[in-house]
């Protein structure tokens, strides 16, 4: 896919398996956006329902703490994709994304996805399937950790909280 303004992200993992026709459809549905160094890429309701693929540059993702400080959650580079959950469930983001250096992204927002679904359902299906596969992978890992907590098996990354807290939280996870 050669997006407008020479954004080329065909090699991004999130697009694996897509056909040339799919890329043409995606090029129409999404748009190119550039950010200056230090510019906010997404925050709270800013581009809340947008999915990003980094074509050039990088994005640092922060979590805002209660005391006003920021904790780095991730540093993402070219080819990284993020925001698929926000694109699909439409809830405001809790994290904050800042461009590191001049950054260019391919952006698909909820309106673009709706158009893609309506006008190019095949491309939309292929993209959604790839997004779902990635989310399922993450959810599976997290679920495994969660069940270990319930069975009293400590894990390195999911080992705190009282049993009552765990139970109520897990109820939320599994759809109570």
């Amino acid at each position: 896919m050669v997006m407008s303004q020479e954004v080329d992200i065909r090699g991004a993992r999130v697009f694996s398996g897509l056909t040339p026709d799919d890329f043409d459809a995606l090029a129409q549905a999404g748009r190119r956006e550039s950010y200056r160094p230090g510019e906010t890429v997404f925050s709270g309701n800013l581009r809340a329902q947008s999915f990003f693929v980094i074509a050039d540059g990088g994005v640092e993702v922060y979590r805002r703490e209660i005391d006003g400080s920021q904790t780095v959650l991730a540093r993402l580079g070219r080819g990284a994709a993020f925001g698929e959950a926000a694109l699909l469930d439409g809830r405001p983001r809790k994290a904050l994304g800042i461009a590191k250096g001049t950054t260019t992204c391919w952006v698909l927002d909820a309106g673009g996805l709706a158009r893609l679904r309506a006008e190019q359902p095949v491309a939309a299906t292929h993209l959604l399937a790839n997004l779902a596969r990635g989310m399922a992978y993450r959810l599976n890992r997290a679920s495994t950790q969660a069940t270990r907590v319930v069975d009293g098996r400590r894990t390195d990354s999911f080992s705190h909280g009282s049993s009552g807290v765990r139970r109520s939280l897990l109820d939320r996870l599994f759809g109570r």
């Binding site: 991004a12 990284a80 698929e84 959950a85 909280g161």
Partner: peptide, 22 residues
């Protein structure tokens, strides 16, 4: 939901925000 749960159960752990980070 899991992102929120991981934060609440263990504030030291943050769920990854990117699926397809290389």
């Amino acid at each position: 939901q899991m992102d929120g749960i991981l934060e609440e159960v263990d504030p030291h752990v943050h769920a990854p925000v990117a699926v397809h980070a290389p």
